[in-house]
Design a protein around this nucleic acid. Structure first.
Length: 365
DNA sequence: AATCCGAGCAACCGCAGCGGT
DNA sequence: TACCGCTGCGGTTGCTCGGAT
């Protein structure tokens, strides 16, 4: 794989951009669009490599960038998403209006990480550090720390409650082909690079899930091995209540490739909302659990990205591929499958307990 | 006033992945 | 299938600025 030599070329300027350079770049892109970044500098009369131009544009010159202090809401969003996604800044950036991944990354590293550390929360795992909260006999050290913990967990709950593990499992199954991640972050098969591109900027998403069990698990090859989610249709509604309903045989078999197993979906209900550039996309699922019955409702949304983005939101999981063909959990992360489910259960129970015993809107930051 | 030092942030670097040939 | 070009991403660097000494 040939490395792009653009930045190695001699004679190309590096370092801070001058206002003149900014002006040239801005003027060129406004008139022609960026097209090929590699070719752009010469056309725009810039002594820069294309990479540098792209970076300058995406991180600074783009007209839709908001600069300045992060709001409380933005901070919480970053923290919550970081708890789910880890250092996937570009994915996090798609949830913050007009913020760039670079800015979010910097903000995390310079502000939020330190703040969490101060609170005794491990900024990597987003869990309270043992030595901070517990003494050797497991008793809490002091009430302040416990309060921090409760507040933090409460905020974390907000994020994670939007993403029940089982829904993640379902979507993993839908998507199929999850890869393992050495760092414990997701390695899903979805292409996220199209998210947050020129047409999609600031989704915030929630997922709600009924108490009933979600569908059984697909095999690992899943549906749509090309990472698409072909069973979903997006209907442009422009604010009307009109929705497109896709109905068909309530049988997964009709949707995927012929190799996967036949599973019937139990009754279930899913509601997914996402606010994008022009928010309020709603995906709701009613009746028999089957992707055919997904009902999508959106307005002013770049349709191609919406579906992908929406499901990427659902795929925010730190678990790897734990699903097997038969729907049982499989073990490929070092622990047994039952350990995983036990841990998961305990985890959710602890979060729910914390939330039940603490104010939901307690100011943390 | 000069120097030091840390925080904040813009920009760079290298890698991975994708599409085209 | 292998190679190449290109883009995007995340980690890191290094410059700037402001506060402390």
């Amino acid at each position: 794989m040939g490395r792009s030599p653009c930045c190695d070329k001699v004679g190309l300027k590096k370092g801070p951009w001058t206002p003149e350079e900014d002006q040239k770049l801005l003027a060129y892109i406004e008139e022609h669009g960026h097209g090929s970044w590699r070719a752009l500098p010469a056309k725009a009369g810039l002594q820069r490599c294309g990479k540098s131009c792209r970076l300058r544009w995406t991180n600074y010159l783009r007209p839709d960038i908001k600069r300045g202090k992060f709001s409380l809401q933005e901070e919480q969003t970053i923290i919550q998403l970081h708890a789910l996604l880890g250092n996937r800044w570009s994915a996090i950036a798609t949830h913050l209006p007009k913020r760039t991944d670079n800015e979010i990354k910097n903000y995390w590293n310079t502000h939020l990480k330190k703040r969490l550390a101060k609170m005794g929360i491990d900024p990597v795992t987003h869990k309270p550090k043992n030595d901070t909260l517990l003494s050797s006999d497991g008793q809490s050290k002091n009430a302040a720390n416990l309060s921090h913990m409760a507040q933090w967990e409460s905020a974390r709950l907000e994020a994670e409650a939007r993403l029940p593990q089982r829904s993640v499992d379902v979507l993993k199954a839908w998507n199929g082909g999850w890869s393992k991640s050495s760092e414990g972050n997701i390695g899903n098969g979805l292409n996220t690079t199209g998210i947050g591109g020129d047409h999609l900027e600031s989704p915030t998403s929630t997922l709600t899930f009924s108490e009933n069990a979600p569908p059984p698990i697909m095999n690992s090859s899943g549906i749509g091995g090309d990472n698409s989610i072909p069973m979903i249709e997006l209907v442009e509604t422009s604010g009307s209540s009109e929705t497109g309903i896709i109905k068909g045989e309530h049988d997964w078999k009709t949707l995927g490739n012929s190799s996967h197993h036949h599973h019937h979906m139990p009754e279930n209900s899913v509601s997914f909302t996402s606010s994008l550039h022009h928010p309020d996309m709603t995906i709701s699922m009613e009746g028999p659990w089957s992707p055919e019955s997904l009902r999508l409702n959106s307005s002013h949304i770049h349709a191609g990205n919406v579906v992908e983005e929406g499901f990427t939101n659902l795929l925010l999981s730190d678990s790897g591929d734990r699903l097997s063909d038969s729907g049982k959990e499989s073990d490929n992360s070092g622990g047994s499958g039952s350990d995983y489910y036990e841990d998961n259960k305990n985890y959710w129970n602890s979060i729910l307990n914390l939330v039940n015993s603490s104010p939901t809107d307690s100011p943390m930051f």
